[in-house]
């Protein structure tokens, strides 16, 4: 029997059988190449000389590892040429599309996968404020920012829902703390292999974070709300909450890999009709972690 919360998702996940059989296999490993420290040719030849085999993907700068190996023990890792990262983890950043010179806030940034990806897209210009409420997680964030040779990033430690400096950011990313079931795998008895404990009131925290993030945008600014859960209560319900409280507008966005539109109802609860503009990514369709991405404009 498939355990909860996954069993509940039968209501909306396409090709349920394929989803379940995908959950029984390990997820493939991916990485992003960092072009701030060396050209992609140098990065490839360095990794090649270490026997790291990369397969191209539809997400720019993301590659699938030919064989799952310890990428952290490679020269390429220590030279800051790579960041091991799920394929779908690049999508929120592509949706936000930060540009050179932007003033960007990453409200839940540690350990920095998306912040450092944004720095790369911005050519290490403008400013990124990479914030996380957990002081202990800032060490890894700082180490990654330095390892990748990034100079445009400031690190802060606030509760996201209390982050100061309202109304000033061109772009804000909320990669929210979530139940993480987009990463879940099943063992041979169909028991969950990953189980996060002690995570209560997630939707309440997520609603506070999305609302604060919206208020931190300048008029005309854009935010992305993302999670690695498929749970509508942590996704469309959170976005609907914002749209009820603030005059935000969901924006359409065409992802480079297979996606499904957001939901407008789940278990008898209705969500804002524009939630179809959210993007859902299912593990068996993309061969990576399940994700949710919503792109929202603060109108002028």
């Amino acid at each position: 029997m498939i355990p909860n919360p996954l069993a509940d998702y039968m209501e909306f996940i396409p090709d349920w059988e394929a989803y379940i059989s995908h959950l029984r296999r390990p997820l493939p490993a991916y990485l992003r190449i960092n072009t701030l420290k060396a050209s992609s040719d140098v990065v490839f030849s360095t990794l090649n000389s270490e026997g790291v085999r990369l397969e191209a993907t539809a997400v720019k700068d993301f590659f699938r590892l030919g064989a799952a190996g310890q990428t952290k023990a490679t020269i390429g890792y220590h030279l800051g040429y790579i960041y091991p990262q799920a394929l779908s983890s690049g999508l929120p950043v592509l949706a936000l599309a930060p540009r050179a010179g932007d003033m960007v806030l990453d409200l839940c940034a540690a350990p920095g996968g998306k912040s450092t990806h944004m720095a790369q897209l911005m050519g290490d210009s403008g400013i990124i404020i990479a914030n996380d409420r957990k002081f202990g997680r800032l060490t890894a964030l700082m180490a990654n920012v330095k390892r990748l040779g990034i100079t445009n990033t400031v690190i802060t430690c606030y509760k996201g829902e209390h982050f100061p400096i309202s109304g000033s950011f061109d772009k804000v990313l909320v990669d929210a703390p979530c139940s993480g079931d987009g990463k879940f795998r099943l063992d041979q008895n169909d028991e969950l292999l990953h189980l996060k404990r002690g995570r209560t009131f997630l939707p309440a925290i997520q609603k506070a974070l999305i609302q604060r993030a919206f208020d931190l945008l300048r008029p005309g600014g854009i935010m992305v709300y993302s999670t690695c859960t498929l749970n509508p209560q942590e996704n469309e319900e959170v976005v609907s909450h914002l749209l009820k409280k603030r005059a935000g507008e969901l924006l359409p966005w065409i992802p480079p890999i297979d996606w499904e539109p957001g939901l407008t109802s789940f278990k008898g609860r209705n969500y804002h009709e524009s939630c179809v503009l959210c993007r859902r990514f299912y593990p068996h369709k993309i061969d990576s972690v399940g994700f949710f991405v919503a792109k929202i404009l603060r109108p002028t």
Partner: peptide
């Protein structure tokens, strides 16, 4: 708040 990389 400071940006940048430690130089020396």
């Amino acid at each position: 708040m400071r940006c940048g990389l430690p130089f020396v």
